[in-house]
């Protein structure tokens, strides 16, 4: 089988054709931080956390949607990248109201973990303190927009795996929000099958099982990959 050979952080590595930089890096044991990416779902490059440097390109490229090419030179870690990643995380924290100590996902939150892993020391940007609602009209689940980072994993899992497409994004810029059906309360969204895949996919405490108190919301994010594999590859072993 033909492979692409390229340079990853100064070392020659190979990748299967069509593999993204992110996939090739993982195959070679190199970690690139991600947030909007979830195995089993399509990639959209929304969060920009996986930005990498590619020799010859003045712009940073998101590893999750950049295909490997023969002879490319990729750098996944540099002071410049670390700075950008920290800035992205700071902006995410400043944009909405993330209050870790009382959050249902405290200790099980990907945003929190990325902030720690990437040495996000403080937030340079003014907190926006937007006034956002919590929707717990659904019988079993709730969405707290204060904690949403607009990664759209919920939108993709609902569309691509469940096939219901209950979730979508409305609004522009800082006014963007995930919505259910035609921007109706979740409890009134007739397309929702109550499958709970969006709950498992959510990286933060934004989508949660109702009744959760602080730190109780553990997402089983690998369930999404399991279902995707079961469907596409007819494999049922986790």
């Amino acid at each position: 089988m033909a492979v692409n050979t390229f340079t990853l952080n100064g070392e020659l590595v190979s990748a299967s054709p069509g593999a993204t930089v992110l996939e090739a890096a993982r195959e070679n044991g190199v970690e690139i931080p991600t947030l909007c990416e979830l195995e089993g779902l399509s990639n959209i490059g929304a969060c920009r956390l996986c930005l990498v440097e590619i020799a010859g390109s003045p712009r940073l490229q998101p590893a999750c949607v950049t295909a490997t090419t023969e002879g490319m030179e990729v750098r996944t870690d540099s002071e410049r990248l670390r700075q950008y990643r920290r800035m992205i995380l700071e902006l995410l924290f400043a944009e909405r109201n993330h209050v870790c100590p009382v959050c249902v996902a405290n200790g099980h939150c990907e945003l929190q973990s990325r902030a720690i892993d990437n040495g996000m020391e403080f937030v340079r940007f003014p907190y926006q303190h937007p006034d956002l609602p919590v929707d717990i009209t659904h019988a079993r689940f709730g969405i707290d927009h204060n904690r949403c980072i607009l990664c759209t994993r919920c939108v993709r899992v609902c569309d691509e795996i469940e096939g219901a497409h209950t979730w979508d994004v409305a609004g522009r810029g800082t006014g963007s929000r995930v919505i259910t059906d035609l921007n109706q309360p979740w409890g009134d969204a007739t397309t929702c099958t109550t499958c709970g895949k969006c709950v498992e996919a959510c990286p933060t405490g934004a989508i949660f099982r109702k009744g959760s108190s602080a730190g109780e919301m553990e997402h089983q994010r690998d369930r999404i990959r399991f279902i995707a594999d079961a469907r596409s590859k007819r494999e049922w072993t986790p």
């Binding site: 100590p101 009382v102 249902v104 609602p133 919590v134 717990i136 709730g142 707290d144 109702k210 009744g211 959760s212 108190s213 602080a214």
Partner: peptide, 14 residues
């Protein structure tokens, strides 16, 4: 105000 009931013990304990 505006928080889910289940989070209140954790908030008020502080």
């Amino acid at each position: 105000e505006g928080r889910p009931l289940w989070e209140m013990p954790g908030i008020t304990a502080r």
